[in-house]
């Protein structure tokens, strides 16, 4: 029975699709330590399928700094959520994970598609996407509060810098529930170190929820020669499996 379950899980894994642009070692395997690819304009190309290198950031985005510089209400809310084992988090109702939470789920990689005017992030999880505009537009004068916000990107040398505003106050930074307000401004600095590795330095600037801006550096690894799979959250079916108290 256990074997049967394992087989079913394996079938649901990512298909092997040898992709043309994957650099290879002499034995034909993907060479994940090859240099980062470049686009025709000489910029690093972030395109590819990525997954977070370590699961602990989903468990606590502030893992490396000890404790986030909470405002008192945010500290109390975080404690309440963490004590309830993250019960009530938006993703259990099939609502988006948010930023950076959507990139932290180790079982659900995401794909970056870098085009001249926009960088798109396709999340395997929930089949949601996010756009980071690079066509020179600025932030609109008014935006509707949203789960993924409104993102503008630019290059600083080899680092892709995405600024995002226009969040609602409902998404969580991680599964235990680091909260934020609608004053949140997120800066993400994407650096592709080589073909197989990327880091994102993410800074949270939210004076309503935190006493000062704070940051986390999150490692990602490339999933070569594969494709993301469709993963649709079905509320009624999944709800009963939720853990928490």
């Amino acid at each position: 029975m256990l074997h049967y379950v394992l087989a079913a899980i394996l079938l649901a894994q990512w298909a092997n699709i040898p992709l043309p642009n994957t650099p290879r070692t002499a034995d034909g395997k993907p060479n994940i330590s090859a240099p980062a690819p470049k686009t025709s304009d000489g910029r690093p190309d972030l395109s590819g399928i990525w997954r977070v290198g370590e699961g602990r950031y989903l468990q606590n985005i502030a893992a490396d700094i000890g404790e986030a510089p909470f405002q008192p209400w945010a500290a109390a809310l975080y404690k309440e959520r963490a004590d309830a084992l993250g019960k009530g988090r938006p993703s259990e109702r099939c609502i988006p994970h948010g930023i950076p939470d959507g990139m932290l789920v180790r079982n659900s990689p995401f794909k970056i598609v870098q085009t001249p005017g926009v960088v798109v992030i396709l999340y395997e999880e929930f089949n949601h996407y996010r756009q980071i505009f690079t066509d020179g537009r600025g932030f609109p004068p008014e935006t509707n509060p949203s789960w993924f916000g409104y993102s503008i990107g630019k290059w600083e040398d080899d680092t892709f810098v995405a600024e995002t505003v226009g969040f609602n106050d409902k998404s969580w930074f991680d599964d235990p529930g680091h909260p934020h307000s609608d004053a949140l401004r997120v800066t993400e600095r994407f650096r592709r170190l080589n073909f197989g590795r990327m880091e994102i330095l993410i800074t949270f600037d939210d004076p309503m929820a935190y006493t000062k801006p704070w940051s986390a550096t999150i490692p990602f690894t490339l999933l070569p020669d594969t494709e993301i799979i469709e993963s649709i959250c079905e509320n009624e079916r999944d709800h009963e499996h939720i853990v928490g108290k």
């Binding site: 109702r93 099939c94 609502i95 988006p96 756009q131 505009f133 609109p140 509707n144 949203s146 789960w147 993924f148 509320n235």
Partner: peptide, 9 residues
């Protein structure tokens, strides 16, 4: 530009 439109069951 597209807007975000999240379905809330």
């Amino acid at each position: 530009e597209l807007m975000e439109s999240v379905c809330e069951n």
